[in-house]
Design a protein around this nucleic acid. Structure first.
Lengths: 175, 175
DNA sequence: GTCTATACCTCGATAGAC
DNA sequence: GTCTATCGAGGTATAGAC
């Protein structure tokens, strides 16, 4: 794996476990086995790094959902829930866009805006999957998936996420 | 307001808007109009400060719910949702225990444990309010309330929180 | 692309005068 | 209780050699 990819992957992992203020260029340098200053060659500033990681994350996210383009509504929502579950890993990680929603104050404005736009697009995608116009069901589902990631930290991790997420998907489908 | 209270209130506000790593003793000193070093007289370390703010927050939380001790289930859950809504303020704040759930790595272990214990107690409280043994409905509601705070940041703030929270309360009551 | 070296800043925390 | 002064660590970022 090339150095830039190592830095990017490490940064994503740290953003999602420690938050935007919870890691430094020194951590990235150690992971890639280079010196701190060399990190700046690949990503001049921390904002550049965060922007790059975020755009890659969103791109992968949509690519996964695009694979369900012709699936039935229940399969589409199940795939979405699975994305959020996989994003948790062993319970220690958050979806990147959840992690970046916590402390908007420590992020550049355009990054916060990208996260908001992603959420709006996602609500629209859920709406379309359900064949709905009213966004209420989509907002309910998104809140349950994001909340489940947080709540799972205080309980049995992935297992707790699953029961909450599955119930939320069933509710959306049967309304 | 005495200095200690000013520091405590400011710290709570900053914890809930900027996260545990998003503010410094310098910010607190400026708010209380004293020098940085004087903050350490009131709260020797940042962990002491966080512990103090957290225990005060939890105490106030339970006091609010205790006022509903003899109320009907729907009134109890409505009061809980209202607590989470008020905790959002204008959409910029999170419940303290949500804010502290994000980056456990930057907190002392006993603080993380206190947050987890609080969530467990809260699930038990919801269960009791519903007259249930199975914690599933309680977990669903808690995830919806916490997720609603996050999702509301990308949409219409308090209004979005309300629609999600109200729907979640109705679901819990009618199951 | 990566290095050494360094500038400059902010952080949490302490010592000791008042 | 609050101050000045300071410490040591660690942060982002840059300059310039290789």
């Amino acid at each position: 794996m090339d150095t830039r990819t190592t830095l990017s992957n490490t940064a994503e992992h740290l953003l999602r476990t420690a938050g935007p203020d919870g890691f430094s260029f020194a951590d990235l340098a150690a992971a890639a086995d280079i010196r701190k200053a060399s990190v700046h060659y690949h990503f001049p500033t921390k904002a550049d790094l965060t922007r790059s990681v975020l755009s890659g994350y969103i791109k992968r996210f949509w690519a996964s959902l695009a694979a369900q383009e012709n699936a039935a509504p229940d399969a589409k929502l199940a795939a979405l829930a699975e994305l959020y579950r996989d994003a948790m890993a062993d319970g220690s990680k958050l979806c990147l866009c959840v992690a970046l929603s916590i402390a908007p104050g420590s992020l550049a404005d355009d990054i916060t805006q990208t996260v908001h736009d992603f959420h709006k697009d996602l609500v629209n995608w859920i709406n379309a999957a359900l064949g709905q116009d009213d966004p209420q069901l989509a907002l309910d589902l998104l809140a349950s998936l994001q909340g489940a990631q947080l709540v799972a930290r205080s309980f049995a991790g992935t297992a707790t996420f699953n029961t909450i997420a599955n119930a939320a998907v069933q509710r959306a489908l049967s309304s």
